[in-house]
Design a protein around this nucleic acid. Structure first.
Length: 598
RNA sequence: CGGGGCGUAGCGUAGCCCGGCUAGCGCGCUUGCUUGGGGUGCAAGAGGUCGCGAGUUCAAAUCUCGCCGCCCCGACCA
């Protein structure tokens, strides 16, 4: 399940990349740039990666959910972008750049002006014209395809961009994790056939696996809900982290993994029993919870109760029935019913509808014909159940789903819980939190139909392109790398995305001092080999420089002090391994060799 | 948007309940000396509209009201 490094890709390559000469990209002196490290984290940072982004001088906050990338942060960001770019190119995608400023008309056409309204950043120009700041670009790229792709001969095509995206987050959180603006890579594939679209999807899926591996991330794909973006097949790439905002159910035995919003399990249906001839009403004064009904004197186990929920789905009230010991999964509810917006009904909406308050609700009697009843599949064939009587203070027992309740449709609506048997292999499922760093969707023809992205097929018929879309949260990925790679001293960068690969730390910085002279020499030699080096030329005490180097997290540090120098040695210290002393003449080679093992 | 919390120097904070301030401390910053292999030591400094605005009062960082910003939980989330 862990994404491992693909065999034929060579990440973390160091040295001999190209003749660097004096290329500024490869070298920097600490005093030339700005690395404002902080001994203490600002109090508004909560999670470790956010604190370290600030403490290591990588970013600064301008406003809630809006950040400046400082020089070091930008270097790492660019490296992530470059990895994404290389792998997208390798997978045959074409880089484009689309406008951030988008006219509402195309969003009206796709229907997302309404369905995505709550996250759309809306701005007006001085003429009063409305614009949307792009959260993603399905509408734009599909418009391009509509205008420029006319023949099956031009397909398949895949376009991507890496650009600033905007989202009107109601609550920005955790630094770059959930920001109002962020860098995203979005790609869009167009195919003539469904099989072609699947192949395009697979290419992106594989590219994502490579990308995250090259970023040093343990990311793994999980089955995912498609949300308002639409489509019918989707995977998210998840980085395990306790601070993640997603929950993932997975099976270590067979590899099944799915977002909790989507996950299913092999839990048994509710066993049928011998029951009486009819449902029977009984008094339950003051009992308004599953919990209370399961205790004395009623003693109805939660798994023999039917939980009745009233929701408003796209302005229409609906009833949802799930087992007393289960939790409704709202994402599944939306996915299965096709509703765009759902919310629990309020007490004021429920009472006129069913005649009772929450806690005494049921679907046996007094359900208006216009109200659809959706029941969780786990209740199919269930009987000997207890449920509310739609009369405050009363419940029914001896309830049979089949006999006593008119169900409009059966769906899988429950949320899986840890320990349930895997639907595929029966072994217990586990659940853990994770950060979503990428998402691939098979879109189908939803956008191509609405925006007229059609082409002439071999047989002369006009067909909509079959689309896919593929996102990577680049800035979020950067933070996920830090969330996954850190210790008490600071960031632990993978070599591939570290702002600089090597930090040279001379313990004396006077230009004619022996340590500084050697530092300059190694700096020049390593740079010439294509190694990215920062030279800490600050006139600071050793402790300060070591602490800062650890905090920023350079993968390799070379310390040059009088003591080792007297023995003709320098000190090479990998960020996460013990120090080694090497002869001065072999220092460059030693660094190059070491880099191959990181 | 609902609930909770917080805004005092670049960062972290004390003071606020119980009004009396010339607003204290640590880190950072400047200067000098010192030290020189894991955030040296000493000394002298600079730096504050106490988030903003009104009000109460002889007197407001402190009490009241309004606003703004930030953080957390929830809702929401391509």
């Amino acid at each position: 399940m862990d994404a491992t490094r693909p065999p034929n890709c060579v990440p973390n390559k160091i040295g001999n990349r190209r003749p660097a000469r004096q290329n500024a990209r490869f070298r920097m002196k600490w005093t030339q740039t700005l690395i404002p490290t902080l001994r203490e984290a600002p109090s508004d940072a909560e999670i470790v990666s956010h604190k370290l982004l600030l403490r290591a001088g990588l970013i600064r906050k301008l406003a809630g959910g809006v950040y400046t990338f400082l020089p070091l942060g930008l270097r790492s960001l660019r490296k992530v972008e470059q990895i994404v770019r290389e792998e997208m190119d390798r997978a045959g995608a074409n880089e484009v750049l689309m406008p951030a400023l988008q006219p509402p008309e195309i969003w009206e056409m796709s229907g997302r002006a309404e369905t995505a309204s709550n996250v759309l950043f809306k701005v007006k120009d001085s003429a009063g014209r409305q614009w949307f700041l792009s959260p993603t670009a399905e509408e734009v790229i599909t418009t391009v395809a509509a205008n420029e792709i006319n023949s099956y001969r031009q397909l398949p095509k895949n376009f991507y961009q890496i650009s600033l995206k905007f989202r009107d987050e109601i609550r920005p959180r955790f630094g770059l994790m959930r920001a109002k603006e962020f860098i995203m890579k979005d790609a869009y594939s167009f195919d003539a056939t469904d099989e072609g679209a699947m192949a395009s999807y697979k290419k992106m899926y594989d590219a994502y696996t490579r990308i995250f591996a090259r970023c040093g991330l343990k990311a793994f794909p999980v089955e995912a809900d498609t949300g308002v973006i639409g489509g019918n097949y989707s995977h998210e790439f998840m980085v395990p982290a306790e601070t993640g905002e997603n929950e993932v159910a997975f099976c270590e035995a067979c590899g099944y993994a799915a977002n909790i919003e989507k996950a299913t399990s092999g839990v048994p249906k509710t066993a049928a029993r011998e029951i009486g001839a009819a449902a029977e009403k009984f008094a339950t004064p003051g009992v308004v919870t599953i919990e209370a009904l399961s205790k004395e004197p009623y003693k109805v186990p939660a798994n023999r109760q039917i939980k009745t929920l009233v929701y408003i789905a796209d302005s229409q009230p609906i009833i949802i029935l799930i087992r007393g010991d289960d939790q409704l999964n709202e994402t599944k509810l939306m996915a299965k019913t096709g509703a765009v917006a759902v919310r629990p009904a309020t007490v004021d909406e429920i009472v006129p509808l069913l005649g009772a308050k929450p806690g005494s609700l049921g679907a046996v009697v007094n359900v208006p014909a216009s109200v659809k009843v959706y029941a969780d599949e786990r209740l199919q064939d269930a009987n000997d159940m207890t449920t509310g009587a739609n009369e405050d203070g009363f419940h029914f027992k001896n309830v049979s789903m089949e006999r006593d309740i008119k169900v409009s449709a059966w769906f899988d609506l429950r949320t899986v819980t840890a320990g349930e048997p895997c639907a595929k292999c029966g072994k217990p499922l586990k659940i853990r939190r994770a950060i979503e760093v990428g998402h691939v969707f098979k879109l189908g023809t939803k956008y191509s139909e609405k925006l007229n992205a059609t082409f002439l097929d071999v047989d002369g018929s006009r067909k909509p392109s079959v689309m896919g879309c593929y996102g990577i949260g680049v800035t979020r990925t950067l933070q996920a790398i830090i969330e996954q790679g850190n210790d008490k001293d600071g960031v632990i960068w993978p070599l591939s995305v570290a702002p600089y690969q090597v930090c040279i730390t001379p313990l004396a910085v006077a230009p004619e001092s022996e340590p500084m002279k050697l530092a300059e020499k190694l700096y020049a030699e390593l740079t010439a080999k294509g190694v990215e080096v920062i030279l800490d030329d600050r006139d600071e005490r050793p402790g300060v420089k070591f602490k800062d180097a650890d905090l920023v997290g350079f993968p390799i540090r070379i310390a040059i002090g009088e003591k080792a120098l007297a023995k003709g040695e320098v000190e090479i210290k990998p960020r996460t391994a013990p120090v080694q002393f090497v002869k001065i003449d072999g220092a460059v080679e030693a660094v190059l060799a070491l880099a191959k093992t990181i």
